[in-house]
């Protein structure tokens, strides 16, 4: 899978752990050694194997959140997370937009915020404004041409009314600046 991120199109280097329930019995799972590399673990794996995950200080860790996961319980973990992946169960499910803003704006999460699941070109602009900085597009939009198009989707608007999680200035502020400039002259 290709990831569209701050550095453009890159390969996904993260290894995803399957959800706990789908693995073998919990006792065995708890014993099994974790694979090497950067690990992206779903919420339930974080719950059962938290210590093992945190045992290697050098390893980069990620959390995959589904829309129904009670994500607030992972807030204490934020400083240890290099990646949070928010899953869009459907193109038109807007919940992760709110979660993303809260993670960025209220809880100051500075790692990579990745949109996964039903992620399509035409949501990207909104996603980035809400604080996502990496996007894993659906398989049918993974061709080089489609990824190129997706990049252009991020540039479709040059202005916006709302201040949100990305740093660009909103129209209300631009107007205030403009008015201040006029009085200064």
């Amino acid at each position: 899978m290709k990831i569209l991120g701050p550095q453009g199109v890159t390969d996904n280097t993260w290894r995803s752990l399957p959800p706990g329930e789908q693995e073998t019995a919990p006792e065995i799972k708890r014993e099994a050694p974790l694979p090497d590399g950067d690990l992206l673990a779903p919420a339930d794996v974080w719950r059962t194997r938290r210590d093992a995950l945190l045992a290697h200080p050098g390893r980069r860790l990620g959390l995959l959140l589904h829309v129904d996961d009670p994500w607030e319980e992972f807030l204490p973990l934020l400083p240890r997370l290099a990646l949070i992946a928010l899953n869009f169960p459907a193109f038109n499910d807007g919940r992760p937009f709110s979660t993303a803003r809260l993670l960025r704006e209220r809880h100051a999460f500075r790692g990579e915020l990745r949109a996964v699941g039903d992620v399509r070109r035409d949501q990207l602009f909104f996603m980035r404004r809400c604080g996502f900085d990496a996007f894993c597009l659906v398989p049918e939009q993974q061709s080089p041409q489609a990824l190129e198009q997706a990049l252009s989707a991020l540039r479709e608007f040059s202005v916006h009314y709302q201040s949100a999680a990305n740093s660009s200035t909103d129209i209300f502020q631009l107007r205030r600046d403009h008015a201040a400039l006029k009085t200064a002259k």
Partner: peptide, 12 residues
């Protein structure tokens, strides 16, 4: 204006 293309509330 606030609601136009609101990034968070476009998929309610």
């Amino acid at each position: 204006q606030w609601s136009t293309l609101h990034p968070e509330f476009s998929f309610l």
